[in-house]
C-alpha cells in the first residue's frame, strides 16, 4: 500500500525544498538568502489561495533546519485554534525551549492569520516581540490589509502572485506524467477553468478525475466539479427570481445541509451563475453587487442562513422589477 504521504497528490507533489519551487522566483531567491545567512525576520506571506504560501514556508524551514525540522517548526492555523489565548499558550511552550541545531531560532507558521480579530492581533504582536530572540513568525494571509499596521511593520512582506495558466498547466502535465494518467488539452482547459488559478484545487480536481479511470478530458473534469457544485444553485436562483421565496429558501437549506456547501460556496456559485441567467444584461452587475455584499458579510462572520435568505428576498424583488 502506498505510504500515507503520497495518497493525496497535493502532498505527494508538494515541493520539499526551495529549489523545487518553479514559480514565485523573486520570493524564492529572497528566502534562499535567509537560508544562506541562517537568519530571517518575521515574515508576512500574502496572496490568493493555492499559490504556494504554505509550501514556501515549509520549504524554507526544511532548508534551514534540515534534520532538525521536527523540533524547530510548528504550524498553527488561526481559524482552527480557539482564540488568541490558545495560540499564546502554544507559542509560549514552543518558544520557551532553545532551538536544536545551528540555527538560533525556531519557526512558527500561523496560517490564515487574517482570521484573527484586531484585539487578538494586538496580543499576537506582543507575543511576537517577547519571543523574537528564539522564534520567528511567518504569518500567512490572503490579504495583508487585514493585518494591523504594527504587525505589518515588523514583518518582511512577501506578495505571492496568482499562478499563470502556463505554470498550472505545466504542473498538471508533470503530475499526470508521473502518475501515468492521460490528460488531454480539453481536460487541462477544464481544470484551469474550474480551479481559477488555485493550484491546490487544480491538483485535487486532477486526482479526482483520475479516479474515474481512463483519460482525463473536459467531461471527466466536469463530472468531478458537477458533484462539488450542484445544479440546485441555478434552480434556486430561478425560483427566487420568479418570486417563489419559500421554495427557494427550502432549496437553500438543502444546499447547506444535505449537500454540505458552505454559505460562501453558495454565493460564489450564485455569482458564476449570474452570467447564465436569462435576464437583461444590465441587471447582472447589479445582482453581483448584492451577491458580493452578502459574501463579504459572511466572511466577516455573519449568519449564513439569514444573509442568504435576505439575498433570495432581494432576488425576488429584482425578479418582480424585471418581469413588470
Amino acid at each position: 500500500m502506498a505510504s500515507e504521504e503520497t495518497l493525496m497528490w497535493t502532498e505527494k507533489y508538494r515541493p520539499r525544498t526551495l529549489n523545487d519551487i518553479v514559480n514565485q522566483a523573486e520570493i524564492v531567491s529572497r528566502l534562499r538568502t535567509f537560508v544562506e545567512k541562517k537568519d530571517m525576520p518575521h515574515c508576512l506571506f500574502s496572496g490568493p489561495p493555492g499559490t504556494g504560501k504554505t509550501t514556501a514556508a515549509l520549504c524554507l524551514a526544511h532548508d534551514l533546519f534540515g534534520e532538525y525540522f521536527q523540533g524547530n517548526f510548528l504550524e498553527l492555523n488561526a481559524s482552527d485554534a480557539r482564540g488568541i489565548d490558545v495560540i499564546r499558550g502554544v507559542v509560549k511552550d514552543f518558544a520557551r525551549t532553545m532551538p536544536l541545531g545551528e540555527v538560533p531560532f525556531k519557526i512558527l507558521v500561523l496560517d490564515e492569520a487574517d482570521a484573527l480579530t484586531q484585539e487578538a492581533q494586538q496580543a499576537l504582536r506582543r507575543t511576537m516581540e517577547r519571543f523574537t530572540r528564539t522564534c520567528r513568525f511567518i504569518l500567512i494571509v490572503n490579504y495583508s490589509s487585514k493585518i494591523i499596521e504594527p504587525i505589518q511593520s515588523r514583518c518582511a512582506l512577501f506578495r505571492f502572485s496568482p499562478l499563470s495558466r502556463e505554470d498550472v498547466a505545466k504542473r498538471l502535465l508533470y503530475i499526470a506524467g508521473r502518475e501515468s494518467v492521460e490528460l488531454d488539452d480539453s481536460g487541462i482547459e477544464a481544470i484551469l477553468y474550474v480551479s481559477e488559478g488555485d493550484l491546490r484545487r487544480a491538483v485535487n480536481t486532477l486526482q479526482a478525475a483520475a479516479a474515474i479511470g481512463g483519460p482525463i478530458t473536459a467531461d471527466s473534469v466536469f463530472m468531478v466539479t458537477g458533484k462539488a457544485r450542484p445544479e440546485e444553485v441555478r434552480e434556486m436562483i430561478g425560483l427566487a427570481l420568479k418570486g417563489d421565496f419559500v421554495k427557494a429558501r427550502k432549496m437553500l437549506h438543502d444546499l447547506l445541509v444535505t449537500y454540505g456547501l458552505s454559505g460562501i460556496d453558495v454565493v460564489r456559485q450564485i455569482h458564476r451563475e449570474l452570467f447564465n441567467l436569462d435576464i437583461p444584461e444590465g441587471w447582472k452587475a447589479q445582482l453581483a453587487d448584492i451577491v458580493g455584499e452578502i459574501d463579504f458579510r459572511m466572511s466577516e462572520g455573519a449568519d449564513e442562513e439569514i444573509q442568504l435568505s435576505a439575498l433570495l428576498a432581494k432576488f425576488a424583488y429584482v425578479g418582480s422589477q424585471i418581469g413588470g
Binding site: D198, N204, A208, A211, A228
Partner: peptide
C-alpha cells in the same frame, strides 16, 4: 492537519474531491 490547511479550507477544497474519489474508485 495532514494537508496543511484549516478545517474550513479542507471542507471546501479537499472534502468534495475525496468524496468523489471514494465514490468513483
Amino acid at each position: 492537519k495532514k494537508c496543511h490547511v484549516s478545517s474550513r479550507e479542507a471542507f471546501t477544497s479537499y472534502l468534495p474531491y475525496i468524496k468523489f474519489i471514494i465514490e468513483a474508485n
